[in-house]
Amino acid sequence: MWVSSTKWKVISPIAAILLWQLLASAGLLGKTPSPWQAVEGIWFLIDTGLPPGYRLWGHAGASLARVLAGFAAACLVAVPIGVLMGWSKHLDAVLDPLVEAVRPVPPLAWLPFAVLWFGIGLVSSSFIIFLGVFFPVLLNTVSGVKSVDPRLPEAARTLGASEATILGRVLVPGASPSIITGIRIGMGIGWMTLVAAEMTGVKSGYGLGYMILTARDYARYDLVASGIIVIGLLGFAMDTCIRLVEKRLLRWR
């Protein structure tokens, strides 16, 4: 079961890379780098760095810190608010229009304000990622709480639970499958907003998105491809981590 599902999982990336290499070898891609050039690029990033001296680990570490900070902040804010909105029809009615009005704004549009409020640095780029992660987590939490079988809080009430207890020990665990789905979607969007977030400028000179922009400035499209691959791998690794946590937390399903 596990073996076969792993087998299936690697098929599509390998097929995509093979197709990519095939097209490149056939000379059909023009200026687009080949997978092999991208891999060489990764080695260049590890060894020399871009700009020279700024090596891959520094970029990956800085981006990871930004994504995790924005992501963690978004989860810490979105889950409690989402639980309250799912629990209270009144609060939902009051906040929903605001949420729906702000949600469609692309995180990048906040960039000038991000710089104005938080300067350029970790907080500013984390804020942009925060905006990307916040809404999927919030909306999934709200819908998760709303979809909890209404008899469960009632049962808890007849067993002597207070409203606060019901929030924490019935609605949150009941909504947890949906919350975790929101967190997974949010994590994906967090990585997606990273390049935009790092356009706010990075004081340290490190960051994968920033590195991709630098590679563009230097016309090193092979390194752009390397950066994309690294972001993809990191995103995949983090999603796998969340899935493992999910498997453990939701083993009751």
């Binding site: 700009p51 710089v115 640095g121 400028g201 400035d217």
Partner: peptide
């Protein structure tokens, strides 16, 4: 040398804003 200062990339319009907020 390049490492004695911290060189960052900012597009010119954002540069002026970054001066006002003492970011650079």
């Amino acid at each position: 040398s390049d490492t004695d200062v911290n060189i960052i990339v900012l597009k010119p319009p954002e540069t002026l804003a970054a001066f006002s907020s003492s970011q650079i």
